Lab assay of single mutants.
Amino acid sequence: KFNKELSVAGREIVTLPNLNDPQKKAFIFSLWDDPSQSANLLAEAKKLNDAQAPK
């Protein structure tokens, strides 16, 4: 279960257009550290992506 959630969340995070590479890497490392938090980490990444969207 975690492997699928981890890969789905990881793929989504790397495609978020408004995150820079260090931010993406930080989220990916957090996913590896605790795969059970993949849904929460993906939600946080999406929030940050939205907040950094060009206005």
Results as ranks from 00 to 15, higher is better:
1 K>I: 10
2 F>P: 09
3 N>K: 08
3 N>H: 13
4 K>W: 13
4 K>F: 13
4 K>S: 11
4 K>Y: 13
4 K>C: 14
6 L>V: 11
7 S>E: 12
7 S>P: 07
7 S>C: 14
8 V>S: 14
8 V>L: 14
8 V>C: 12
10 G>K: 10
11 R>N: 08
11 R>V: 08
12 E>G: 04
12 E>R: 04
12 E>V: 10
13 I>H: 01
15 T>W: 10
16 L>D: 01
16 L>A: 02
17 P>C: 10
18 N>R: 00
18 N>Q: 02
19 L>P: 01
19 L>I: 04
19 L>W: 01
19 L>N: 01
20 N>W: 05
20 N>M: 07
21 D>K: 09
21 D>M: 12
21 D>H: 06
21 D>V: 09
22 P>S: 15
22 P>F: 15
22 P>R: 15
23 Q>C: 04
23 Q>V: 03
24 K>E: 02
24 K>I: 08
26 A>H: 12
26 A>Q: 11
27 F>T: 00
28 I>H: 01
28 I>N: 00
28 I>Q: 02
28 I>M: 05
28 I>A: 00
29 F>W: 12
29 F>D: 12
29 F>Q: 14
29 F>N: 11
30 S>L: 15
31 L>E: 03
31 L>F: 02
31 L>Y: 01
31 L>G: 03
31 L>S: 01
32 W>Y: 13
32 W>N: 07
33 D>V: 12
33 D>Y: 13
33 D>A: 14
34 D>M: 05
36 S>G: 09
36 S>F: 07
37 Q>S: 07
39 A>F: 07
39 A>S: 10
39 A>E: 14
39 A>Q: 10
40 N>C: 11
40 N>D: 09
40 N>Y: 11
40 N>Q: 13
40 N>R: 13
41 L>M: 04
42 L>I: 10
42 L>A: 02
42 L>C: 03
42 L>Y: 02
43 A>G: 04
43 A>C: 10
43 A>F: 08
43 A>H: 06
43 A>L: 13
43 A>R: 07
44 E>T: 06
45 A>R: 00
45 A>E: 00
45 A>P: 01
45 A>H: 01
46 K>P: 00
47 K>V: 07
47 K>G: 05
48 L>Y: 03
48 L>H: 02
51 A>V: 07
51 A>W: 06
51 A>R: 08
51 A>F: 09
51 A>M: 13
52 Q>V: 03
52 Q>G: 04
52 Q>K: 04
52 Q>N: 04
54 P>T: 08
55 K>Y: 12
55 K>Q: 14
55 K>L: 15
